[in-house]
């Protein structure tokens, strides 16, 4: 497969050398092509590690969720309308993220940037709702140090929220790069990778929604 990638570098730059310091656009592009494939593959492996990270947090939450320590129970605490709204917003953002990739594949820079902005804004409203939910719970006296259940809850859901927040900043940086450089092999890979990341967070949220919220209020 990509075992020949170093060859490709050499060949690509071979063409470039005719023009001096390997600056030939075509040669450069080919050289990057395999590098971008490598990076995408690396990101898949990173996602495995992130899977394990969330798996460990879920396991800890499941072990500790029964230890309420006389504090509020999930049933008393969770307000489902807000959570369901968060869920729909995040699912929709995954859809718009998909539309962004489709626009990119058709070579439409405007559409790509537009859908990425929509995706980031949906992500932002998800985070806003989540922070509002947390603040309200803390005001009701349900803090991270109230009980083992709440320690597990804030850490698991908060880690997901932190991932989404990082994704938003990352997306903003990518939008700037797309505006400046357009769709190249490098930016194309970056869009593909962030879309993988975003869909992954969506899948994690489905588990959060089921295990934390639905099983909590059941």
């Amino acid at each position: 497969m990509s075992t020949h990638n170093m060859h490709a570098h050499a060949h690509a730059s071979g063409a470039g050398a005719l023009h001096g310091a390997g600056a030939d656009a075509h040669g450069h592009h080919d050289g990057h092509h395999d590098l971008e494939e490598l990076r995408t593959f690396g990101f898949w492996i990173f996602l495995i590690t992130d899977c394990i990270l969330f798996g460990t947090l879920f396991a800890t939450y499941i072990v500790l969720r029964g230890n309420m320590n006389g504090g509020p129970t999930p049933h008393e605490l969770f307000e489902m309308p807000g959570v369901i709204a968060e869920t729909f917003i995040l699912l929709t953002s995954s859809f718009t993220g998909g539309l962004a990739v489709l626009a990119m594949n058709r070579g439409l820079r405007g559409g790509l940037i537009g859908w990425l902005i929509v995706t980031a804004l949906l992500g932002l409203s998800f985070i806003t709702l989540e922070v509002t939910e947390f603040v309200k719970m803390v005001h009701e006296g349900a803090t991270i140090s109230t009980s083992a259940f709440l320690s597990g809850f804030y850490t698991l859901v908060g880690t997901h929220g932190l991932h989404v927040s990082i994704g938003i900043v990352w997306m903003a940086a990518l939008i700037l790069q797309l505006a400046r450089r357009g769709i190249t092999s490098v930016t194309r890979r970056k869009v593909n990778v962030i879309s993988l990341y975003w869909h992954f967070l969506d899948v994690v949220w489905i588990f959060v929604f089921t295990i934390v919220y639905l099983m909590g209020v059941m």
């Binding site: 230890n67 109230t146 009980s147 259940f149 850490t155």
Partner: peptide
């Protein structure tokens, strides 16, 4: 660290930690 810094109860003896 969250236990130590934020006073959470993952592994403490009190508060339901394990």
């Amino acid at each position: 660290f969250i236990d130590r810094f934020f006073g959470a109860h993952f592994f403490t003896l009190d508060g339901g930690g394990n």
